[in-house]
């Protein structure tokens, strides 16, 4: 597996505290990786570290085999569309393309103009007058025409209406199919991620809680429901991710590679959204090995 992003003991501290701690992560090349987590979990910090916009406080991060932001060759390999898809409000669409052509050694001018034409963007229009969807598409055009190895997108679709969102993701996936670039994008919209991502990273409270291929993750998690019991009595290879109880019933989400043999459980699959939510709502201190205490919900 060639890693497009590799982090070891990566940490970032701001004045108000640690935004990211002890982050160990391998993101394979050729995949579209979704980064999810609650607000303030450290998603933007991680993406900014990968793009070279921030320098780590501890540990190391390697992107496309180099140190982020270390020189022109490294910058050419990584495309970064920051949160809210920023563009230069005073510059026209054509100015943005000229800027892209001057600043990027691998710039694909034909591709950029083709996209602008197909999107129906007026080259003479100032970026500040574009709609949110159009601005996002302009930013994506710059990111794709740069022809990077890795394209990093920080919540690119958050501000878009459903139609603009779908069009944005269609164009992004088309670029992945055509140019084979790797993508890391953060989003709150798990339904979108389920379509476009084949790799997932869940970040909660400055730490990586879960990372892996979506299919593998879904296959390794199960929802168990059955008569009420203490999760501490489960086999050791079943890691409890979330637990809820009524006075008679217990419902668990567990992670295990082995089949569930206990006939007392009704076993069902866990969808991506529920899986992400189970990890996001897990108490921060409940790391591997810790079991949540039994409590009654009526």
């Amino acid at each position: 597996m060639t890693a497009v992003l590799r982090a070891r003991q990566l940490g970032k501290k701001y004045r108000r505290g640690w935004a990211l701690t002890g982050c160990a992560l391998d993101i394979p090349a050729g995949h579209v990786t979704g980064l999810v987590g609650p607000n303030g979990a450290g998603k933007s910090t991680l993406l900014n570290l990968a793009a070279g916009m921030l320098a780590p406080t501890t540990g190391t991060i390697e992107v496309c085999g180099g140190m982020p932001g270390s020189g022109p060759a490294q910058l050419a390999k990584v495309g970064f569309v920051a949160q809210d898809t920023p563009t230069y409000a005073g510059l026209t669409v054509a100015d943005h393309l000229r800027l892209g052509a001057r600043l990027n050694p691998n710039w694909d001018d034909a591709l950029a103009h083709r996209r602008i034409e197909r999107l129906g963007l007026d080259p003479g229009q100032r970026a500040g007058k574009l709609s949110g969807g159009q601005r996002a598409q302009l930013a994506l055009t710059l990111g794709i025409a740069k022809r990077p190895e890795l394209l990093i997108l920080d919540e690119p679709v958050a501000a878009l209406d459903p139609l603009a969102r779908r069009e944005f993701l269609q164009d992004l996936m088309e670029a992945v199919a055509e140019h084979g670039l790797s993508v890391v994008l953060s989003s709150h919209l798990v339904a979108d991620l389920e379509r476009v991502c084949d790799h997932l990273v869940v970040l909660v409270a400055a730490q990586v809680q879960l990372a892996g291929e979506v299919e593998d993750l879904l296959a390794a998690h199960h929802r168990l429901s059955g008569p009420r019991r203490d999760p501490a009595t489960l086999p050791a290879d079943q890691q409890v991710i979330s637990a809820s109880h009524t006075d008679r019933q217990t419902t668990l989400v567990v992670r295990t590679e082995a089949p569930i043999l206990d006939p007392a459980w009704t076993v069902s699959t866990v969808g991506l959204e529920d899986l992400v939510l189970a990890y996001m709502s897990r108490p921060a201190e409940a790391g591997p090995g810790r079991r949540p205490t039994l409590e009654v919900l009526r």
Partner: peptide, 15 residues
Amino acid sequence: TVKDVVTQLAINPNT
């Protein structure tokens, strides 16, 4: 084609 499906559905080409 893979590209057609990807563009139509906005899904990952690997899928």
